[in-house]
Design a protein around this nucleic acid. Structure first.
Length: 613
RNA sequence: GCCACCUUAGCUCAGUUGGUUAGAGCAUCGGUUUUGUAAACCGAGGGUCGUCGGUUCGAAUCCGACAGGUGGCUCCA
């Protein structure tokens, strides 16, 4: 990350150059903040209600930026007392800057309680005694800024304006919306080009594109946004990963349960979810009956299975698991392929246990997660999602503190690569979230395990202790995959659609050299044998050239392709065509058909297929 | 939900400043060919240009609303 630090002053300087260019083109522009972000920078601007920048304007802005760069203006630092600065902002008609300065004067920081300091990036040392603030000036553009900058506008490296987007002032949706102008910037044109190529590569791997190309899932305007429909191929993927998750859990003592997809609103009033998010529930009703709603989570249902009979301390832990869909009212603008949907399938489980069992249960879950992600070949780190000081959390703070310590202890014991995410906890308890990194280095939250003291309380769950007293169990929520849809979106992009053999919708494709009876019959025999072994095998007998049929199989990223013709019929041997990423033994020339099918079958059973991505 | 942009055949895309019956490749279907490891050849079908409304002698093209999507913002139990 050294490189990132080196690039920081130059990227930040480019933010100023961008702002200066915008100001030359639209002199009444009002500026927000312009920090450095990953791979570049942005600047928030407001041209007023009647004028908005669109991507068509990028050419003009970039031209103007080039001019400023070739003028090689020096970046000059100046300091002035806060009051003078406020006056400056007022005279310059920069109300957003004025607001920042007022905050700075009042509290020594521009960081609103819910505003991320690093995003602001411009000013503030967080010292309430602040007297002077710093400005940077280049040419006729002056900006409130902490720096540092490069010497002059001639030294800003290679850049490109990338996109324009709406962004609320200070990140609050009740504030006016500004326009955020994003640029990417690198030390030289070569680095910039490399980054742009990476973006192109990401586009090729986009799970929405691959989902279409590989025929995995579709959306329908009639069904509705955020409601993916899985094709037969996509359903194979869902079921394979869902089954994998359930196998791991069965081995760890989890039992499967089943619940309906709607429930009385009372269930969620009791759990506390309804009062927490009243506007987000879709209520329906049956004739002359109570109000019902689609389930946005499964825990309240599961508590009712637990509560259905008296429990002894000897019964605990009780562990319920289920792969099932939850329905959430995600806003239209928040939907995104499979990563953000309105009907998400969770590999959900709830453990009811005694306080003294928390550590073992958490450890066992983390072990499952480790095993699972090793098989998928995903890199990950753990985020310990703890509470902050705000009042949105329910339950005894002391219990919280204790639980957070336990969790951090487990992370240490298991030597996890972890970090603490303050303010990331659920309102009912702290959690560990697994942040997985895909092939392009992007991080996604997948697995989660959460401690919950609240719901056992709200549902009055009990067990009888050794001494005959009634005790309250603790609840643990967990999902290994998280949402199957989200997981698939990451995994499709991670693999670029080249799934390991055990998951592949189509594992073997047979290609007939011609359409003569003998060839077709032989291919049918191989097909049948493959199916007997439980393999997903198909045959392409179509009246096309072998070359074309090979290509078709390649395009669909089928792991193994067998060409069936006279040679194979006579020898009973095949030379499997193996997808390039699959690591195989050096000797893979001719082998007996039966031998080949059995080796694939073993590979599938052990989920061992190694791919080099 | 908010801001900007996008929507032409199943898919990927052409379509000059508004001007007759809207094009291509792939895919599909029919025929020829009987094919040996990434695209054989010939032919055919397929689109009320997202929907509705407006401007105009005339709209795929201009304007508006709605729907769906893209990139962000906000949100994510």
């Amino acid at each position: 990350m050294n490189e990132q630090q080196d690039l920081h002053p130059m990227r930040h300087s480019l933010a100023h150059v961008t702002a200066a260019a915008v100001q030359r083109l639209w002199p009444d522009v009002k500026f927000g903040v312009g920090p450095v972000v990953e791979n570049g920078y942005y600047y928030d601007i407001d041209l007023g209600p009647d004028r908005k920048i669109s991507e068509e304007d990028f050419g003009r802005i970039e031209d103007e930026m080039q001019k400023i760069i070739s003028e090689n203006q020096a970046f000059e630092r100046l300091e002035m007392p806060v009051d003078e600065a406020i006056e400056w902002a007022q005279n310059a008609d920069q109300p957003y800057k004025q607001e920042l300065l007022n905050d700075l004067k009042r509290s020594g920081t521009t960081v609103a309680k819910d505003l991320d300091a690093s995003e602001l990036g411009t000013i503030a040392d967080g010292d309430a005694q602040i007297e002077n603030v710093s400005f940077y000036r280049n040419g006729d553009f002056t900006d409130l800024c902490r720096g540092p900058h490069v010497e002059s506008t001639g030294k800003v490296g290679a850049f490109k304006l990338l996109r324009i987007a709406g962004a609320y002032w200070r990140g609050k949706d009740t504030n006016p919306q500004m326009q955020r102008l994003y640029g990417v910037a690198f030390a030289n044109p070569k680095e910039l080009r490399k980054h742009l190529e990476l973006l192109e590569e990401a586009k090729k791997r986009d799970h929405r594109k691959l989902g279409q190309e590989l025929d995995l899932f579709v959306f329908s305007d009639l069904v509705g946004p955020g409601l993916p429909l899985f094709t037969p191929r996509g359903t194979v993927l869902r079921e394979e990963i869902g089954q994998f998750s359930q196998e791991l859990q069965s081995a760890a003592g989890y039992e499967r349960v089943s619940i309906p997809h709607i429930a009385k609103v009372d269930l969620y009033k009791t759990s506390g979810h309804f009062d927490k998010y009243p506007e987000r529930f879709t209520v329906t009703s049956f004739e002359s009956d109570a109000e019902f709603m689609m389930k946005p989570m499964n825990c309240p249902h599961h508590t009712q299975i637990y509560a259905s009979r008296p429990r002894s301390y000897r019964d605990l832990p009780i562990r319920y698991m289920e792969n099932t869909i939850v329905y959430r009212d995600e806003k239209a603008g928040e939907l995104h392929g499979l990563s953000r949907v309105r009907g998400a399938t969770q590999d959900d489980a709830h453990v009811f246990c005694r306080v003294d069992q928390i550590e073992d249960e958490f450890t066992s879950i983390m072990t499952m997660i480790k095993d699972m992600y090793a098989v998928f070949g995903l890199k990950w780190r753990a985020r310990l999602s703890f509470r902050d000081d705000s009042d949105k959390y329910l339950g005894d703070p002391e219990l919280w503190q204790q639980a957070q310590e336990t969790i951090e202890g487990i992370a240490k014991k298991l030597e996890l690569d972890y970090f603490v995410g303050e303010g990331e906890a659920a309102f009912y308890g702290p959690k560990i979230d697994i942040m997985a990194t895909d092939a392009l280095g992007r991080e996604w939250q997948l697995a989660t395990e959460q401690l919950d003291f609240l719901q056992p309380e709200r549902f009055n769950l009990e067990y009888t202790a050794e001494d005959g007293s009634a005790q309250r169990p603790v609840m643990i929520h967990k999902a290994l995959l998280g949402s199957l849809e989200r997981f698939l979106s990451v995994y499709i992009e991670h693999t670029g659609g080249r799934f390991p053999v055990w998951m592949a919708p189509e594992q073997i494709r047979l290609i007939s050299v011609n359409q003569e009876d003998e060839t077709v019959a032989f291919a049918a025999k191989v097909l049948e044998r493959g199916r007997d072994l439980g393999l997903r095998i198909t045959v392409d007998n179509s009246n096309e050239s072998v070359g074309k049929k090979i290509r078709a199989a390649e395009v669909m990223k089928v792991p193994y392709t067998l060409v069936i013709g006279q040679k194979e019929i006579e020898s009973g041997e095949v030379v499997p065509r193996i997808r390039k990423d699959i690591e195989v033994q050096p000797e893979h020339s001719a082998m007996g058909i039966e031998e080949f099918l059995k080796s694939v079958s073993n590979e599938v059973k052990s989920r061992t297929s190694k791919t080099s991505l």
